[in-house]
Structures are given as structure tokens and as C-alpha cells.
Amino acid sequence: MATAQSVFLSGIVLGSLYAMMATGLSLVWTTLGIFNFAHGIFMAVGALVAWQVGTDLGWGLGPAAGLAIGVAVLVGIGFLSELVVVRPFLARRDVVLIAVITTLSASIFFENGTLLIWGARYKQLEPLIPGKVDLLSTAISAHEVLIIVIAPLTLVLLWLFLKFTRIGSAIRAVSQNRESALLMGMNVSLLYSSAFALSAGLAGLSGILLGSVRFITPSLGAEPLVKALIVAIFGGLGSLGGTIGAAYVIGLLEAISVYFIGLYWTPALLFGVMILVLLVRPTGLFGRKG
């Protein structure tokens, strides 16, 4: 049953990518209370910066440098984007709605920016590790194994950061009670931009990992972003563990569905499952009550 194993592995690869993306989305959602629709284009920008820095068609510094600088640039872009696109509207009652518009505008801005800088030609990153590996008696690219390993590792690091560092616990705290955070002397604005920056860094990392599996276009992140949104809602908005669990469930479901039903009907199936789950459990698959 080699096919069952390869379906399983491709599901885990998808799940790993979704887990990183959805965690980024959910981090911003819990902390700032908004959805960042530029998350998808952040992925593409991360991949393009890594391409520019790393590949021989760019500056040729190698894939590792591309990865590091790509993520770092995205952290910076996230930090600045929060200042410009979110901060001015945070005090407003309708910030959720305004943020939909402003983050979508940012997304369009970055999309055209990347076209202006890098043109419309499809690009692809070299795999971080070349070659193939035998896993569960299935040949799978080493790069995909790397994705399977990096995702949980990154998320564990993120969890440790949020749980045990001063800034990390402050980020968790401010999302639960802004007024108390202020009264304890926290720099709430700085915590907001840090959370946004961290989330953008995660987007960059997922984009770079995806960039050697798929072609890099401005819409590299668009389709996975929709899946990540499903994951974030499916997992119960705001619960980190739930989001990660849901990412792997959706990834596996997608892989199975693509194999049996085909690429075309799979998104419809995923939305159908999400709606069913939300009908039965309005707080999501793993979400807390109220």
C-alpha cells in the first residue's frame, strides 16, 4: 500500500504548512482582534526575498541565507505594516471591518510592488536540502521531510516563547485584557506590533518553504491562505493547540480528497466539512466554550 503512505505523507506536508500559516493568522487574531488578509502576500514576499538573496539568478548567497534574510525582512515588514495599516484604527469600534479593508489594500500594494520589482515571470527556489529520502517506504523529497520537521519545531519554539518569556506572556496577556495590561505598565502598542511582526515572520517562513514546492507568483499564498483560514476557524479561533491540530486534520483530509475525488472538488468538500463542524460545534473542532 505505497499509495496510502504517500497520501498520508503529502497530507502531513500540507498540514505542516497550514499549521504555520494558521498559527500566524490566529496569533494576530487573538492579540489584535483582526484578520490579516495580507498574510498570503507576505508569504509570496518572503519567498521572493529568499529567491533574490539565495538563488544564482539573484545574489547567489545560497538557500540558507535566503531563508534567514527572507524571514528577517518579513518580520520588519510586519512591524511596519502594523504601524501603518492597523495602529491608526485600533481604538475604533469598527476596527475589525476597517482592518479587512486596510489589510486587503496592503495586500494589493505588496502584490503590485512585487510585480514591479520582480516582474511576472514564474520563479522557484532551490530546495533547502536537495535529493530524495525514503520515508515509510515511499520516496519523498528531502525538502518535504524538512517541512515536516521544521513546522512542529517552529511551533514548539513559538509556544516556548509565548509561555516562558516576559514579552511572550505579555502578548498572551494583552489579548485577554487590554486595560489590565495597560495598568501593569505594558507597552501595549509595542506588543501589538511584535505579535504582527512574529506572524509575518511565520508567513515568510511558510512562503519560503512553499516556494521550492510550487512556483512563486504573487498569489503563492492566496490558495493556502484560504485553507489556513478554514483551519483557524475549524480549530477554534485563538486556541493555539486547536489550530495546529486542525491544520493536520485538514491537510490529511485534503490529501485524501485529492486522491479520491480530485483537485477540483476538494475545496468545496473542505468548506462543506467546515460548515458541518461549525453547525455541531460553533466554537470549532477543538475550541473552548464561550
Binding site: R166, A173, N177, S180, L183, M184, G185
Partner: peptide
Amino acid sequence: VDRGLIHVPQGNVLFPQLTVVENLRLGAY
């Protein structure tokens, strides 16, 4: 807060999803 004036607000729910000791440690932020 940096000048040492601390306000404990009315009906404060603090950080409901954090533990007692996490809440207290953040008090010394």
C-alpha cells in the same frame, strides 16, 4: 506605573486564561 502609582480597577478580571502565578508575575512587569 513607572512612578509607582498602581491602580487596581473595579471588578478586575485580570488575565482569565493565565494561572494565578502567571498573573502575579505579570504584575511585576
